[in-house]
């Protein structure tokens, strides 16, 4: 594999965002994902290869380590930010259509909840997996999801909640969505949730982490 891609993969896996970022300490003063992605493009590596041979494998490794409790949310967040730094250079190719998006995911933290870390992680990682992400932010009302679907009727919807007091709002949102868009796939996630709860409220999927979410998206994108 191209050496730049390998370096980029290592940077993303270890959460090295750019040359000035202090983390991880052992990679201090080295180029990060931001610089390496640009160098790779300048060297003629295709955006598709950057995505599929560096970013996606890096995040797969991160997801694996997360599932095994070898890393936790802070490290995953750093990796996601590193990936986003690389994605900045790839975005023009997605926008021009040179690299095809796999689909659109509309994502938001449900009404009543201002926690954004899980939602941000998912946004970054899903985008890095080749999807267009429409991030509606936090405290998102049912009608805001429906309005987003008016613009992106084929989108998949992702709902996030961190509070036990707000996860119940997911059901209200799913019902509102299904009233107008009965075929829309809805996935849910968040620390207090589980698959049983997701099934009970009519969600199509529950993912315990963002990497598991991208795995599910891959399956339904086929």
């Amino acid at each position: 594999m191209n050496q730049l891609l390998e370096q980029l993969r290592i940077c993303v896996e270890n959460g090295k965002e750019n040359r000035t970022s202090p983390y991880p300490p052992q990679m201090k003063n080295q180029d990060g994902a931001n610089e390496l992605a640009k160098q790779a493009l300048d060297a003629g590596v295709t955006p598709g290869d950057i995505l599929n041979l560096a970013l996606v494998p890096a995040m797969d490794a991160v997801g694996q380590k997360f599932a095994e409790n070898k890393i936790f949310i802070p490290q995953m967040l750093l990796s996601a930010r590193a990936m986003s730094a690389a994605m900045i250079h790839l975005k023009p190719f997605f926008q021009s259509g040179e690299v095809k998006r796999k689909g659109v995911v509309v994502i938001g933290t449900v009404m009543g909840d201002l926690h954004d870390i899980g939602k941000n992680l998912c946004s970054m990682i899903v985008e890095g997996a080749g999807w267009e992400v429409i991030d509606l932010g936090v405290d998102v009302k049912p009608e805001q999801f429906v309005t987003a679907l008016d613009t992106y009727p084929d989108a998949i919807v992702g709902l996030s909640a961190l509070l036990t007091t707000t996860m119940v709002n997911m059901e209200l949102i799913i019902n509102s969505i299904r009233e107008k868009y009965p075929q829309t796939k809805v996935t849910v996630g968040g620390a207090p949730l589980n698959a049983g709860f997701a099934a009970k409220i009519g969600a199509d999927n529950y993912s315990k982490d963002p990497v598991e979410l991208t795995g599910w998206l891959e399956k339904i994108a086929v």
């Binding site: 009543g112 909840d113 201002l114 007091t165």
Partner: peptide, 12 residues
């Protein structure tokens, strides 16, 4: 402080 449905939250 902000009142949301079912909850009062501290705004980040």
């Amino acid at each position: 402080m902000r009142v949301l449905p079912g909850n009062v939250v501290a705004e980040p």
